[in-house]
Nucleic acid binder design. Structure first.
Lengths: 251, 251
DNA sequence: AAGTGGTCTAGACCACCAA
DNA sequence: TGGTGGTCTAGACCACTTA
């Protein structure tokens, strides 16, 4: 009667586990330290392995644990702040930052990209790049460049993918751009991205879609970057580094 | 011998399922349509329910499905683009946009926030707000404001939380700010945020941490916003709307 | 009360890594 | 080869919504 009935949900087991383990991580474990294996942990807490795993999965999602098949579960360092704003990368790869142009082909872009580009079913240059940070791969990226955006190249024929990538980037950089647009959403890693990022397919990733506007307001290029969600915190604007004292190091 | 041995991973069941169902969603289902229940689907594909669920979970993570306990699984509309950049919200809640100031207390901020504010263990104003979009809750937010940032209020004592929230916001708006800083990372919803966002605890969310710089470069306030990762695509900069023709409507 | 998705169990086997 | 995390199964029960 008088009891304010606010308890509501009786807190599930895995949620409680997650809390308990999370607190233990703060107080009793150092970064890089290895946890007991899942079977032992499950036994120790008196739950099924699946339940224990549900807790670990969330902690990994939050960037507090790192699990590797065949190896074990370790305490993850704090997420690294990765600059995505205008300060970080003009034409990505242009200024020789951590982006590494890997390859280039000419393909018909997927519908979602074609819509952003405003092109129809024309083929575009597709540059594959990957971004390193503190010696770790943090992002895989596809840069879609319509042939119209780099007119001076249409006559030349360059067979090698890597050098063509470099040439396209240089040309883009020469032309410059007038603005950019960015969107971030949650996704799961495709098989090839997963391989580049040293994760399993389906791993949670942050999808950063950038539109680059050329002269006249036309969309000159579109980039879709796939960042590891477990290890990265994306930073925007402000040239100041977040948390500058606490960046992640290789384990 | 001659067989280029590149097959590599024999593609797990749930991954294959995810692909198959995903394609079916594109071709055979309309937005809002209800899928068969999990037990039926599992039987139809000849897998255990847990396996089927693993596939659905990923599709939900990617914003393609919406599942509600007691109701069913429906096809989700495309994610809505939510503006987070400077254009979207000055002092959030200030211009009467979709933010709704709900409450305000004075508390000692969590260590992570205190570090960003540069304050010690002093109490700060904590404004709780929530953001609506197309009639749906998309974000819950905590705005931490050190007393020093709103000096004119230190003398006044306002007992009511809601009006105090409004007063603090008005004062902040009057003072203005000189810059901001933003970071985005993946998280899982705390119990209270989950309630506000109409999700279960642990649901994947995008955590947007914003630092507002006051005159002199000091951090005037810090906001931690929790966006539903399943329904939201965060957009930054550029006053142009992404995908303007395809926005999400209430189902 | 019936039907949905969410949690949990106790097993089994597989893919991967390091010694 | 032994140990790790990843996948998969076939059940059971629970929390929630709707009628």
């Amino acid at each position: 009667m008088g009891t304010t009935q606010l308890e509501q949900a009786p807190e599930t087991k895995y949620w409680h586990l997650k809390t308990v383990i999370g607190e233990a991580l703060d107080s009793e474990f150092a970064v890089g330290e290895i946890l007991p294996n899942e079977r032992d942990l499950a036994a120790r807490f008196g739950v099924a392995r699946a339940t224990l795993r549900q807790a670990l999965e969330q902690l990994e999602l939050e960037g507090r644990l790192q699990r590797r098949r065949g190896v074990g579960t370790t305490v993850a360092p704090p997420r690294m702040g990765v600059a995505v704003g205008a300060a970080g990368n003009g034409w990505p790869g242009g200024t020789g930052d951590a982006w590494q142009a890997a390859d280039s082909t000419q393909e018909i872009p997927p519908a979602s990209v074609a819509e952003l580009l405003g092109t129809g079913e024309e083929t575009v240059h597709v540059l594959r790049r990957s971004r390193m940070y503190n010696g770790q791969p943090v992002a895989a990226d596809l840069l879609y460049v319509p042939a119209a955006s780099v007119p001076d190249l249409s006559a030349i024929d360059i067979p090698d993918g890597v050098t063509r990538a470099r040439v396209v980037l240089r040309e883009l950089q020469r032309l410059g751009f007038e603005g950019e647009d960015r969107a971030v959403e949650l996704g799961s890693a495709r098989a090839d991205d997963a391989r580049q990022l040293d994760r399993l397919p389906g791993a949670p990733v942050l999808l950063v879609t950038t539109r680059y506007f050329g002269p006249g307001g036309r969309t000159a290029a579109v980039s879709v970057a796939t960042y590891r969600a477990d290890t990265c915190r994306l930073t925007f604007g402000g040239d100041v580094e977040f948390h500058s004292g606490q960046e992640r190091r290789a384990s």
